[in-house]
Amino acid sequence: MKELAVHCRIYIFELFTGCDNVIEMHDIWKTYADGTNALNGVSVKIDRNEFVYLVGPSGAGKSTFMKLIYREEVPTKGEIFVNGFNIGKLKQRKIPYVRRNIGVVFQDFRLLPKLTVYENVAFAMEAIEAPRKIIKKRTLDVLDLVGLKHKHKNYPSQLSGGEQQRVSIARAIVNNPAVIVADEPTGNLDPETSIEIMHLLEEINFRGTTIVMATHNKEIVNSMRKRVIAIEGGNIVRDVLRGEYGYEI
């Protein structure tokens, strides 16, 4: 029922707005409690099925940008819509339902060390109270997609960095989210493994999931040629389709 409700809202949202944007930010300002201005009036629209790189120097506001999308932070000013929900105005108890439409991938994987690979992924489906049979099938399917079905009984500590990141990606996509937010997913990985991870993300994007990825990896951005949004000092300074990294490292 909740799923249906979400889909209805998206449909109604699209019907009224006549657009197909998964993420919409209108004049977003974010000032932290310590007085740091992280974002200064950012407006952006990201379409369904887009692949967006978020680039810029450290401390430019990339992380804040992403945290706003998965409602870890709320904007000080401005409106932000994710999948049709005005998530700045969301009631506390509705947050979980919005997060189910967003998969998050971190640089440090954030897997639960005491759970097996299978359990780490199934956990995300249990959390949304999916039926057990479906959990089992879907979890194994997703692990197959990321190429780790044969290791589903292993613990995270028994896997390489690249493999752990695959598990965390599997966990992010297992609930079929509309958006995947990835904060430097290749930051801890060697170049070769990074490319494998990027191919995986590309594959997921190809299957219909919007991906927003913050990165410092010039090679990846330049070789994949997707939309690039550059943030500096809390403002969007560049937004190019098929763009390049544009910074010297």
């Binding site: 998965y70 995300a124 966990r171």
Partner: peptide
């Protein structure tokens, strides 16, 4: 563990 549960959309009751 709790942080990750919240991240994947688990309700507080859950």
């Amino acid at each position: 563990e709790i942080g990750i549960m919240k991240m994947v959309g688990a309700t507080n009751a859950f």
